[in-house]
Design a protein around this nucleic acid. Structure first.
Lengths: 110, 110
DNA sequence: AATATTTATCGTAATATTGCAATATTAAAA
DNA sequence: TTTTAATATTGCAATATTACGATAAATATT
């Protein structure tokens, strides 16, 4: 049906899925990597950098912001978008914990 | 248009997006977490565990397998699905590197 | 005030995803 | 060999996503 049954999962699973899903698109990965690379982080730069129209990029930025991966500060005519360290750390910790658990089990199964 | 312009991004960005996208759904996160929790990992168990119909779970498992997050070994009538440590490590390393880079910059911007 | 610049929003078309019932497939068990 | 059990595939309806042109909104600049 195209609708996800969020009610049936834990809060943690749902919020994690939102965060991860937001990164599950090459354009948004490219945006994140660009923000990581440069010091200045204005939307206009990204429009020049990526092969997408301005409204499309604006939309991707909105999704990244809604998910909590980036923050946006208004600065005159332009907007300064920056990475949100807290949530990126959350993802890092999640995968770190997971791989440690998995290595401890020594891949017994299979 | 609903179609992603993959041709315009790097190989790394595209394959990473596929991997991350596969985890961007609470059902698939729940499946991964279940595989991490239990030692035996047969699809039937997951059907009992999750509030989804068997075809739906089969589909999610297929997506996880295509993305390279899990591996499946046929074992008689049932199939043993297991986590793929290599790709989970890849994700771990990606986010670790990212957060380290970001912390080094001390969030100068904004 | 008029103009330029930057970013957001709206509307819309094309495509993808989610979920399930029905059915097929495959291999073990009887 | 028929039956049973486990998983996959097909087909389909409902909804979500992706992308962009047109346009709006907000602030700087002239």
């Amino acid at each position: 049906m195209g609708i996800t049954k969020t009610a049936d999962y834990t809060e943690q699973q749902n919020s994690l899925a939102v965060l991860i899903k937001a990164l599950g698109h090459p354009a948004r990965i490219a945006i994140i990597e660009y923000l990581l690379k440069v010091d200045s982080c204005i939307c206009g730069d990204i429009v020049k950098e990526l092969p997408l129209a301005q409204p499309t990029i604006s939309q991707h930025l909105k999704e990244l912001k809604n998910a909590g991966l980036i923050k946006g500060n208004i600065e005159g005519t332009s907007i300064c978008y920056c990475l949100d360290l807290a949530n990126l750390n959350l993802l890092k910790n999640y995968f770190t914990k997971m791989t440690i658990t998995l290595e401890e089990k020594e891949n017994k199964c299979c």
